[in-house]
Design a protein around this nucleic acid. Structure first.
Length: 284
DNA sequence: ACGCTATCCTGATCGC
DNA sequence: TGCGATCAGGATAGCG
């Protein structure tokens, strides 16, 4: 699915199409995704302009002037496409939700696996929304420091890989960027989260920021489902150092004249990619 | 309380 | 070419 850089890329390209615009209609083409589409979704957001598009964690939030907010999560396979006015392409498969603006821009949510979700609530109630209420800190905000990361990791001995995927501690990271950040920080994914020393947490902190910023600059990672709102792929997949590279030589080791193959293992039923030389587990 | 597992779904790919 | 097995970027209910 889209992780933080992919959601951020989508958000930035949707801003010009939506901010300040009034919707003319909303098509709801099936009863549900993971959750039922909310009551009122096809009528409440109409007739007053969008004031702001925001991102929180991997959620896109569309605020309206009358005080309602639409929340969109793309799940694993969700995509958003913008068709500018006049571009009359035939509908895609799995267009479950379509927003039309008054000046005829068309924004379509496509989600074959239907793991995504759409919610509607009063903007002032957002902190009571179950999706938003328990989220951890934003890694690209000033709240994210070595101190706050240390605190977020100190309370659990679950593997660091799993702790970084836990959106109640830190938001926005998914399987790709966790693997990449742990590789750059030279931390074994099975290390207990609370076992990292101060230098390791510091490295992890700076590489999380660096990787997310680089991925946003590259327009995200396109592996299978994710594309930009105009259908173009991102470019950061070309810069992945371990994710999806099982059996390839570790690039760090190569520059030092060693040939070490990147390995894949399973943690909590999800693939983890790592370099067994750069990322040693001191307890094994 | 915590940490792991299965589950929601479709589609792409791989091996036979 | 077809068929079954396997795997996917996430979130979460429910279990031990």
């Amino acid at each position: 699915m889209p992780e933080l850089p992919e959601v951020e890329t989508i958000l930035q390209s949707m801003k010009p199409a939506l901010e300040g615009q009034t919707l003319s209609s909303i098509e709801v083409n099936r009863p549900d995704l993971r959750l039922p589409f909310p009551q009122g979704l096809s009528t409440i957001p109409l007739h007053q302009p969008v004031t702001r598009l925001r991102r929180r964690a991997k959620y896109i939030l569309i605020d309206f002037q009358h005080g309602w907010t639409i929340l969109i999560h793309l799940g694993m396979s969700g995509r958003l496409f913008i068709n500018p006015a006049g571009e009359n392409l035939p509908p895609r498969k799995h267009e479950h939700l379509v927003l039309w603006t008054k000046d005829k821009n068309r924004i379509a949510l496509v989600d074959p696996r239907r793991f995504g979700m759409v919610c509607l609530f009063r903007t002032t109630q957002e902190n009571q929304q179950p999706q938003l209420a328990h989220l951890g800190m934003e890694p690209l905000s000033s709240q994210f420091t070595t101190q706050t990361l240390t605190k977020a990791l100190a309370t659990t001995r679950m593997p660091i890989k799993n702790a970084l995927l836990d959106q109640r501690r830190i938001v926005g990271l998914g399987n790709i960027y966790v693997c990449e950040a742990l590789f750059k920080a030279r931390i074994h994914p099975q290390r207990a989260a609370n076992s990292l020393n101060a230098r390791e947490v510091k490295r992890l902190h700076s590489f999380i920021i660096e990787i997310l910023q680089a991925a946003i600059a590259a327009g995200g990672s396109t592996l299978r489902d994710y594309v930009h709102t105009d259908g173009q792929p991102g470019a950061f997949q070309n810069l992945h150092l371990v994710y999806g590279r099982e059996g390839e030589s570790c690039s760090t080791c190569l520059t030092k004249g060693r040939i070490v193959l990147i390995q894949r293992m399973t943690q909590s039923n999800r693939s983890t990619f790592f370099c067994p030389h750069c990322q040693k587990n001191p307890h094994k």
